[in-house]
Amino acid sequence: MSNIAIKDIIKPENLVYQKTKLMTDKPLSYCPGCGHGTTHRLIMEVIEELGKEHESIGVAPVGCSVLAYEFMNVDMQEAAHGRAPALATAIKRLWPDHLVFTYQGDGDLAAIGTAETIHACNRGEKIVIIFINNGIYGMTGGQMAPTTLPGMKTSTSPYGRDVELMGHPLKITELVAQLPGTYYVTRQAVHTPSAVRKAKRAIKKAFQNQLDNAPGLSFVEVVSNCNSGWKMNPVDSNIWMEENMFPFYPLGDIKLEGRLVK
């Protein structure tokens, strides 16, 4: 061990992993173990692989990923809370040859921005929406989200979500799949290597649809953990997610080429 120098190790043939080219050098502000960072990386890898670094415009939300523009090394705009699909609509219509995407949390996309989400989907805007569903408001310190599971404890449902009082979790992804304007709707996760590979294929398909000028919007939900908001360590949060989130939000394609699956 002692007589191997660092320079003997750092060789191209030993390379197993490297930083995604389109991620900036800025350290991620996410809690260790959070799925936001992985998802950022996948989007950037896809844009790089499609060779569209200079023809992509992203819209960041308000939520933990409000600083997505610090990490994604493409042109980005930062929207007001919930309004990203409106910004993206105008950007895409004015720059139809560009790849336009939004990156939004569940509070941003499915509470305050529900109207913008539904109407962008229904108009069939030719954009990609990446939707991070962690069932909670991470940024503001763990309040109930529209996607919080029944009985789940958050700081504004401290005794568990009581659906009689607080309403039911919103399966916004199933909902937008019903709209004629969506072309591709899928639900993924990024908590294991195989899930990451699948999620990447899905994100790539979504952006490819946009490149191909497919007739409609591509919507990729990523069911993710919020270990801080759920008050768990990262490993436990992933187990909790598999046991509780996935049965309610099952993974897989919901709509392909404009047709509902099954």
Partner: peptide, 8 residues
Amino acid sequence: GYPITPQS
């Protein structure tokens, strides 16, 4: 109301 820092 709707959550927002610093009044959540």
